[in-house]
Nucleic acid binder design. Structure first.
Length: 884
RNA sequence: AGGCUCGUAGCUCAGGGGGAGAGCGCUACCUUGACACGGUAGAGGUCGGCGGUUCGAAACCGCCCGGGCCUACCA
């Protein structure tokens, strides 16, 4: 058994043990293992991504669960992998091409895709190694990629199957178009941001010369595509205008004034311009009319004006056009006014470019029937959100869900398995059709578009397990146990996995969904590159060690609250790692040669040892319960308190005299220490995998890795020992308090007399003189029930004991009197409060009996203390009177 | 506009019907043979405000104030 170094070196330990875990197959799951399965699929990070705080928290929590369940005997599987991130990845490679002076169109689709794969091989997936650095115990032999062959098969199977069932269709309607990414987006890929804009009031003259109508708009350039002006049918101000036509300025087109119930008479002028091609409301209005209003598209996919916008504006950027339109209208005297106006603009979630609604032919998933089942599964409790309140978010979206636009006009992704024939036939098939079934043509064109990346991630919980093959993995590990993720992708991902899982597996994809916090900076700001407040997890791991970093995240991962992260806190938890390390060093240095006992022989042990084993038992149980309920911070806090404030502060200190001496129970105490350390390491291992393995390997243990050691359970509790220890701790603290409050040096050896209030207390204290002396740094002169307070002593009154510290000459009588009076005041306040309660008939009559009994007991205890303190105060006053 | 969430010690936050807890910070004293990344003791809070329910509210309910977030087509 090697001695531990003076300092823990995270860098070498982390490298050594992670490699060991990998090479010995610790993380590889065996579907034939008959133990109860526990499965997690990792939220696949983007292939373009690098580890940020959110990933670090997410992976840490999953790793804790996986390691804990493994130690608890489960057949665990944690599937890792990455997402091909269509738009993001394509953007990256397109930038690369741009630097070379070409674009994807010049090199063509095939060569472009090759370039992306080359890029992936070279730069993609750095995050995987970063996750390993974090200690993630994923089964890397099962790592998947959303564009790999198996997952692509799954995607194609799902697409074709949904199409055959009429749940995928193609339609021409307005879509959210990003002019920069040049692709359609789904509704949820659009972000809304409030901006201070302008509302422009424009006059549209009636074609019959009878004046004008004024409309208000935030997007004047779209007027070029107006095909009507709408007013509310019940708006009497405009009833005369309905059915008339107005002359659309700058174009001279005649457009009708129509009635539509969607118009809010209270907004603006109560008359609204209708641009069916560039506004979702207007599209709806246009389709409601009979006959439907025409669509005139004035903005092209590149964000520039079309020929239909008129010769003057064609080819102009949409914003430049806006300025030009306003100027021209002003020149024509048609701008009534412009006023400030707060409204929300839509932007692309990838590049923040303002979205342009455009009409286009796209593929859709009809989600209604799928969503219904997905809602039901949560309502029925088949899947539980933790914290539960996230159900509301899920339901709110699911119940108002619109069809999902899944086609994207990019190249990097799953190409839609649809083929077109010149005869107009559309074929959707698992394999490329050889000829058109209708006309026999063999020159078929495959759909150019690819699928939304989220389409493939929606299948992740079963596609990664081998679906559509019926694999053993699928049988064993589906449904997965829990999904751990952030709230920001409940719509994007969680909801869609629910729909697809239920549809294709006939069962929910996970039993629990644990929604964790967002990691923010110390002042609560969201971390972002533009704000410059990003903290790099890798830097934290380099500086403080992975275990300290993980423990920090865990300790702050309280449910329902964001993690405000600051470096100081990591430093604080590095101290905890150091504390553990040093405790281990001490134990191993003082138990040389002692083997690990199965269970310490408690009967033969002192009260302190029985107490600490009992505390370990309680802590293990706390941690288990906390993890069952995903209260990670509680688990962390519980262990921190046990290790630092019970094991180190009390137990190790109190057994030092035994270890340094040669008493009969020395061997038993040594065994107990080895046991405590070993079990504590196991308890901590899921949270701090590296330092625990490092210590464990250097001490007596069974097995080849702590990864496979059982999680502590069935440790004996000993209530009697906990009660007895309370008397000891109370007495020690009383003496220390006197020392502290009288400002006596810690090195000064005090003498103390302990007056006990029961035989019980007297017995315990007498048996543990050695501990008392050591912990209180005092010579215990006497212990007894009928001691007299020696003159010139300082006193502390406690529940079980009264402590006298004789301080002839040293005692500052005035200071002591002040101390006692302060104590008296506190006690009197308490007794007053409790007394008035116990005099209150309503309290006595209505409060539960056990509460009343408890309050009475507290009151009696308080009164006894007051009595004793009063006596002591009187003696002190006498002493002062006599002395002066 | 709707919905959610938070407001507790200087800071960060637990807790949750029976007179307030932790970590860090702060103060005093201490190189006691694991650890100064340490030890001991201490100071510090009318639990955002106002009402209500209750024998009893920091906790439950309502309103208000103040942060944060999400959803939404008000042109």
């Amino acid at each position: 058994m090697a001695e531990l170094d003076k300092n823990y070196n995270p860098e070498t330990a982390e490298k050594k043990w992670y490699e060991f875990w990998l090479s010995s197959g610790m993380f590889t799951a065996d579907p034939d293992d008959t133990a109860a399965p526990f499965t997690i699929v990792i939220p696949p990070p983007n292939v373009t991504g690098t580890l940020h705080m959110g990933h670090a928290l997410n992976a840490t929590l999953q790793d804790i669960l996986i390691r804990w369940k493994k130690m608890s005997g489960c057949n665990v599987l944690w599937i890792p992998g990455m997402d091909h991130a269509g738009i993001a990845t394509q953007n990256v490679v397109e930038r690369q091409l741009a630097a070379e002076g070409v674009d994807r169109h010049t090199i063509g689709r095939e060569r472009f895709i090759e370039r992306v794969w080359t890029w992936k091989a070279e730069y993609g997936g750095r995050i995987i190694n970063q996750l390993k650095r974090l200690g993630a115990s994923c089964d890397w032999s099962r790592e998947r990629f959303t564009l790999d062959e198996g997952l692509s098969n799954a995607v194609r199977e799902v697409f074709v199957s949904l199409y055959e069932q009429g749940l995928i269709y193609r339609d021409n309607r307005l879509i959210n178009w990003c002019p920069r990414c040049r692709t359609a987006l789904s509704d949820i890929e659009v972000e809304h941001e409030d901006v201070e804009g302008k509302l422009t009031y424009i006059r549209y003259p009636f074609s019959d010369g009878s004046g004008h109508l004024t409309v208000a708009t935030t997007r004047p350039e779209t007027m070029l595509g107006d095909t009507a002006v709408a007013v509310n049918p019940n708006d009497e101000r405009y009833s005369h205008a309905i059915g008339k036509t107005v002359s659309l300025p700058l174009t001279g087109r005649m457009i009708p004034v129509i009635a539509d119930p969607s118009v809010d008479p209270a907004f603006g002028t109560g008359a609204v311009k209708v641009t069916p091609s560039h506004d979702f409301n207007d599209e709806a209005t246009a389709k409601r009319q009979s006959p439907a209003l025409p669509f005139i598209t004035v903005i092209a996919p590149d964000g520039k004006m079309t020929a239909d916008a008129g010769r003057k504006f064609a080819g102009m950027d949409r914003y430049e056009c806006r300025r030009m339109v306003i100027r021209d209208l002003q020149d024509a005297g048609l701008v009534e006014k412009q006023e400030k106006h707060g409204h929300a603009i839509s932007q692309c979630y990838r590049c923040k470019t303002v979205i342009e609604p455009l009409p286009a032919l796209q593929w859709y998933v009809k989600v209604g029937p799928l969503a219904e089942q997905a809602v039901k599964a949560v309502r029925d409790g088949k899947t539980n959100f933790v914290p539960r309140s996230w159900e509301n978010t899920y339901f709110a979206w699911m119940e108002n869900i619109k069809d999902w636009c899944i086609s994207r006009q990019i190249w990097w992704g799953h190409r839609i398995p649809a083929w077109y024939c010149d005869c107009g036939e559309v074929m959707v098939a698992r394999r490329e059709p050889e000829q058109c079934p209708k006309c026999g043509n063999i020159n078929l064109r495959q759909e150019e578009d690819v699928l939304d990346t989220w389409f493939s991630s929606a299948l992740w919980p079963f596609s990664t397990l081998g679906w559509p093959e019926r694999t053993r993995e699928l049988q064993k590990y589906y449904p997965t146990s829990v999904l751990v993720t952030g709230f920001d992708i409940i719509f994007f991902w969680v909801a869609r996995m629910m729909m697809m899982g239920i549809k294709f597996m006939g069962d929910v994809p996970f039993n629990d969904v644990y929604i964790h916090a967002l990691v923010r900076d110390a002042s609560g700001q969201k971390m972002s590159k533009s704000k410059g407040n990003v903290i790099d997890p890798l830097v934290m791991m380099d500086k403080y060690g992975t275990d300290a970093f993980r423990f920090t995240l865990t300790a702050f991962a309280a449910q329902g609250r964001d993690v405000k992260f600051s470096e100081e806190r990591v430093e604080g938890y590095r101290h905890f790692v150091n504390k553990l390390w040093n405790a281990a060093r001490f134990i191993l240095a003082n138990t040389e040669g002692k083997m690990l006992p199965a269970v310490p022989d408690l009967q033969s042990l002192d009260v302190g040892s029985r107490w600490i084993v009992s505390r370990l038992s309680a802590t293990a149980e706390d941690v288990r319960k906390a993890l069952e309920e995903y209260r990670f911070n509680d688990a962390a806090g519980s262990m921190y308190h046990f290790i630092w404030h019970e094991l180190c502060d009390w137990y190790i200190e109190m057994v030092k005299p035994v270890l340094y001496g040669d008493s009969a129970d020395k061997a038993a105490v040594q065994e107990c220490l080895v046991y405590l350390l070993e079990r504590s390491l196991r308890l901590l291992h899921p949270f701090m995998p590296y330092v625990t393995e490092e210590i464990w390997q250097n001490m007596p243990h069974e097995g080849n890795s702590i990864v496979r050691a059982p999680f502590p359970a069935d440790i004996p509790r000993d209530g009697a020992a906990e009660d007895q220890m309370e008397v000891l701790m109370e007495t020690v603290t009383a003496i220390r308090t006197i020392r502290g409050e009288l400002n006596l040096s810690p090195t000064l050896e005090l003498r103390a007399l302990v007056k006990t209030h029961s035989d019980h207390a007297r017995g315990i204290l007498s048996e543990n003189m050695l501990f008392l002396k050591k912990l209180a740094r005092a010579d215990i002169l006497k212990i007894g029930g009928d001691l007299e307070k020696p003159g010139g002593s300082s006193v502390a009154v406690r529940s079980h004991v009264e402590v006298f510290v004789p301080l002839e000459g040293l005692l500052d009588v005035d200071l002591e009197i002040e101390r006692i009076r302060k104590e008296m005041a506190k006690l009197e306040e308490t007794s007053e409060f409790l007394g008035s309660k116990l005099r209150n008939q309503e309290f006595l009559g209505r409060a539960p009996q056990q509460i009343v009994a408890k309050e009475r007991e507290k009151f009696d205890d308080c009164m006894k203390k007051i009595e004793r303190v009063r006596e002591n105060l009187q003696k002190m006053l006498d002493l002062k009177g006599g002395g002066s």
